[in-house]
């Protein structure tokens, strides 16, 4: 569209006829609003008074943890299980440190060939299923313990949670041997010698 045509169009548009709103338009609108208002007012009032809720305290730590880890969204149970894994890692590390300090642990480290001979513990599918079930069950139990406990004055049942954590640690210590392609495997690589020593102490 050239400049002249645009000017012509603009001029014509400005001259389009103007219309007045019908006199009774407002009366109709007002009547409609009044009618609607009288019917819906109780609902509107009640909706304004609907209860509000406070976000639970535990949500932010989970968000923060995920942001730090740069991980996908993990549900609450998964987070507790991950916390249990972290606890187990720390426990095993501490145990390893203790063994290194103990006089009995002064035995020469295993050679690579010996390590290969001992190799990875091969568990049956049934055993793996049992361990996984134990870990999942313990995660749920831990969750229950950490919920508000009405019988204990609305406090988390820490004692029960610690028992569960102990069970989780034991289960995970065994499951670490079977996880082939996870962070647990990397941990196993680091601590394999230590675990071999531990196993030989527990089951000579």
């Amino acid at each position: 569209m050239n400049e002249k045509n645009r000017h012509t169009l603009d001029k014509a548009l400005r001259k389009l006829p103007q219309h007045s709103a019908p006199e009774d338009a407002w009366a109709q609108i007002e009547a409609s609003l009044s009618h609607e208002s009288s019917e819906t007012a109780p609902m509107r009032d009640a909706l304004k008074k609907l209860p509000l809720y406070e976000a639970p305290e535990g949500v932010w730590p989970r968000i923060e943890w995920q942001l730090q880890a740069g991980m996908r969204v993990v549900r609450r149970h998964s987070l507790l299980a991950a916390a249990a894994v972290a606890l187990c890692i720390v426990s095993i590390g501490a145990l390893g440190y203790y063994l290194r300090q103990a006089p009995e642990s002064s035995a020469p480290p295993l050679q690579l060939s010996e390590r290969q001979q001992r190799g990875q513990v091969h568990l049956t599918e049934a055993e793996i299923a049992v361990y996984q079930s134990e870990i999942a069950g313990a995660g749920h139990s831990l969750d229950s313990c950490l919920k508000l406990n009405p019988e204990a004055g609305k406090e988390p049942d820490i004692a029960a949670a610690l028992v569960v954590l102990g069970q989780v640690r034991d289960s995970l210590r065994q499951s670490l041997e079977m996880e082939a392609d996870t962070a647990a495997q990397r941990l196993r690589m680091r601590h394999s010698l230590l675990q071999e020593a531990l196993r030989s102490r527990v089951c000579p």
């Binding site: 009618h35 609607e36 019917e39 819906t40 007012a41 109780p42 609902m43 009032d45 009640a46 909706l47 304004k48 008074k49 609907l50 209860p51």
Partner: peptide, 11 residues
Amino acid sequence: SADWGHELDAG
């Protein structure tokens, strides 16, 4: 449109 009466309890 529904008639919600004169007052509606929020609870």
